[in-house]
């Protein structure tokens, strides 16, 4: 009986060992899962941005391998009670969705004023989100609470 036990255990160990080692081989070719990094300088969290003016947009993107694209998504975060519904107002909730190609780069500094808040944008709370992908499909994003307002100065930066 003793030999029987030993034999069975040995068999199982051999089988399981071969199973584990056979799958261990492929760990080397594991694909890139490191997400790109977004360091968004402008707009900052809680910033009030002037309606009718371009947004000062500035950030650094980097990836361990190669970046692919980034997208900026701005949509309202109205709470639904304090703001008049669409039908009753002459302004329009601002929505923005645009993407830029940064493929092939490992890191890049982005600085532009391409995003323009239209004159008829409804003032209030908004979300600004920046998404970035790399060539492998890894994706990262960052969310900012911003306020669109008629009563602030447009952002004139120092440089």
């Amino acid at each position: 009986m003793k030999t029987n036990i030993k034999f069975s255990i040995l068999c199982l160990m051999a089988v399981s060992f071969s199973m584990f080692t056979s799958c261990g081989d492929d760990d080397d070719e594991k694909s890139d899962t490191t997400k790109p990094v977004i360091a968004l300088d402008e707009p900052a969290e809680g910033d009030s941005l002037k309606i009718g003016a371009p947004i000062h947009f500035e950030m650094d993107l980097s990836d361990n391998e190669k970046l692919k694209s980034y997208k900026v998504d701005i949509h309202n975060n109205f709470d639904g009670h304090n703001h008049a519904l669409k039908a009753a107002t002459s302004t329009e909730a601002f929505t923005y969705n645009h993407s830029w190609d940064v493929s092939g780069l490992k890191n890049t500094h982005i600085h532009h004023h391409e995003i323009v808040i239209p004159e008829n944008a409804t003032p209030g709370k908004y979300h600004l989100m920046v998404y970035c992908t790399d060539e492998a499909g890894n994706e990262t994003f960052i969310a900012r609470n911003i306020v669109l307002s008629n009563d602030v100065e447009a952002d004139h930066h120092e440089d």
Binding site: M19, M129, G137
Partner: peptide, 29 residues
């Protein structure tokens, strides 16, 4: 008790990132 197992699927369904941006708010690719 020791119970090892292994399985192989040639067409397991999963969600694959496409690299194409969606225009919907709050979504990435």
């Amino acid at each position: 008790i020791f119970s090892p197992f292994g399985s192989w699927f040639n067409n397991y369904i999963y969600l694959k990132p496409t690299g194409e941006w969606s225009i919907l708010p709050h979504t990435g690719q």
